[in-house]
Amino acid sequence: MSPELLTRLLALEGVPSALASARDGIDAMLRDRGLRRTTPETTAESLLRGAHASAVLEGSSSSLDDLRAGTGDDVAAASVRLSAQLLSQAPVVTRSPLQAFARLHTLAGAGCVPDEALGRPRDADAAARLRDLGPVVTADAPALLVAAVVHAELLAAEPFASHNGLVARAAERLVLVARGLDAKSLVVPEAGHLALRPAYEARWRGWRDGGRAGQHAWVLHAADAYVAAAEASPLHDV
Rank of each mutant, 00 (worst) to 15 (best):
M1A: 15
L10N: 04
A20D: 14
D24A: 15
I26Q: 02
M29A: 07
R36Y: 12
R37W: 06
R37T: 03
T38G: 08
T38C: 09
R49T: 00
G59S: 10
D66K: 08
L67C: 10
R68N: 01
T71S: 07
V75P: 05
A76P: 04
S79W: 05
A84T: 04
A84M: 13
Q85P: 11
L87F: 13
Q89C: 11
Q89D: 11
V92G: 12
S96T: 15
L98H: 10
Q99R: 15
A108K: 02
G109S: 05
D115F: 05
D115W: 01
L118Q: 03
D123I: 11
D125S: 12
A128D: 05
R129A: 08
L130D: 00
G134D: 05
V136D: 01
V137Q: 12
V137R: 13
T138D: 12
A139E: 08
A139M: 13
A139G: 10
D140S: 11
A141C: 06
P142H: 09
V149H: 05
L154M: 12
A157L: 04
A161Q: 11
R169F: 08
A171C: 05
E172L: 07
L174D: 00
A178N: 09
V187W: 03
V187Y: 02
P189T: 02
P189L: 07
P189R: 03
A191L: 12
G192Q: 00
Y200H: 10
W207E: 04
W207T: 02
Q215E: 14
D224S: 07
A229H: 02
P234G: 07
D237E: 15
